[in-house]
């Protein structure tokens, strides 16, 4: 058992180191970055802010990790957020009970996932094309729902999802932690994780081994749609209004980035939801750090891109072999061949 924990730590090491470095840099530019205070029944501080602001991308990254593990990609999650937020806001504005609005929004998220899953698994479209359809059309659907305006509402229960507190933390933090825990436990306690990885590595061989590839591929898009729905509810609740044009705009790209920074290969296969979540927090820490540093806003995106290039370069295989090359005498871990060392030293 300790071996497995050690192996997991080793897998997460690059992400944890990157997060630590980014947080340390934030501590340098803003000396009270690590301060936490308790007020009004919850914690306040920049760290809490990172967890809170990072909620949408963290939620999207959970579903995106599973989709990418099957060698797919889901570009539609930003648009799905907008649709689900619009559906919830319009129902609440109509005076429907909050529970109805929430269930409807989650149902619409599942429907979006089902649509993507149908295109990818049944019609066998390339995932990038299949999900591009909803990415483009989704904004239009959301505008139809909001009838072209920013649909505002005043329901304290709904607003609580975006700006309330639960257990001393902002509600969005609890929400993404809960979704991550549920999905993580289901995926790793069942055989879902293994089967999803098998599909991502070799779909043909998996199908021939009797793996229900269609069902599983549809499932991961369903999870992605559901995660996007929760993220959409949070951003809508946060501003107390559904903005069809801007809710979740470009967040699919941040989510993909979070997964990639988390070390899951876009070629599918081995995945780690935890690593993707750390990736999401790295991205949010960079965002927060740049804001706190007070750089002119026009530099923000460039600095962010620079830091991400650095993180990805650290993980790159090319740099890995360079690192192995720079290390002194590559020695074989088996003690069987000590006589070879002088040959190696050459």
């Amino acid at each position: 058992m300790p071996d497995m924990i050690l192996a997991r730590l080793k897998r997460l090491a690059p992400q944890l180191i990157a997060l630590a470095l980014v947080l340390a840099a934030n501590g340098l530019v803003s000396p009270n970055f690590f301060d936490l205070t308790w007020a009004n029944g919850r914690l306040y501080g920049s760290l809490i802010d990172v967890l809170n602001r990072g909620a949408p991308v963290a939620l999207l990254a959970i579903g995106m990790t599973l989709v990418i593990a099957t060698k797919g990609i889901d570009l539609s999650v930003g648009a799905t957020m907008a649709i689900c937020g619009a559906v919830a806001a319009s129902l609440v504005a109509e005076g429907q009970p909050l529970a109805v609005a929430l269930v409807a929004a989650l149902g619409v998220g599942l429907l979006c996932g089902l649509w993507n899953g149908f295109l990818v698994a049944i019609l066998q479209l390339q995932p990038i094309v299949a999900t591009l359809i909803l990415m483009v059309a989704g904004r239009g659907i959301a505008q139809l729902v909001t009838e072209g305006v920013i649909l505002t509402f005043n329901d304290p229960g709904f607003a609580f999802l975006g700006s309330g507190n639960l257990l001393g933390l902002p509600t969005p933090v609890i929400l993404w932690l809960a979704v991550a825990l549920i999905v993580g436990v289901i995926v790793r306690r069942s055989a879902l994780g293994l089967l999803v990885e098998a599909i991502g590595v070799n779909r043909r061989a998996s199908a021939l081994a009797g793996v229900k590839t269609r069902f599983l591929v549809i499932s991961v898009y369903l999870v992605s749609g559901l995660c996007a729905a929760v993220a959409g509810l949070i951003v809508t609740a946060d501003i107390r209004g559904a903005d069809a044009n801007n809710a979740g705009l470009w967040l699919e790209l941040d989510a993909i980035l979070a997964v990639v920074v988390g070390g899951t290969s876009l070629l599918g296969g081995r995945f780690s939801i935890l690593a993707s979540l750390i990736g999401a927090m790295i991205i949010q820490s960079i965002n927060t750090g740049i804001l706190l540093a007070g750089f002119p806003p026009e530099f923000n995106l460039i600095i962010k891109a620079g830091i991400i290039v650095a993180i990805l370069a650290l993980q790159s295989p090319a740099l890995g072999s360079l690192w192995a090359f720079l290390r002194p005498a590559p020695r074989s871990p088996t003690p069987a061949a000590p006589d070879k060392k002088e040959l190696v030293a050459r």
Binding site: S190, A191, L192, L194, L195, A198, S206, A209, G210, V211, K212, L216
Partner: peptide, 11 residues
């Protein structure tokens, strides 16, 4: 893999 696939993902 094949045995697991036959049992289904829930088992």
């Amino acid at each position: 893999l094949a045995l697991q696939a036959r049992r289904g993902w829930m088992k």
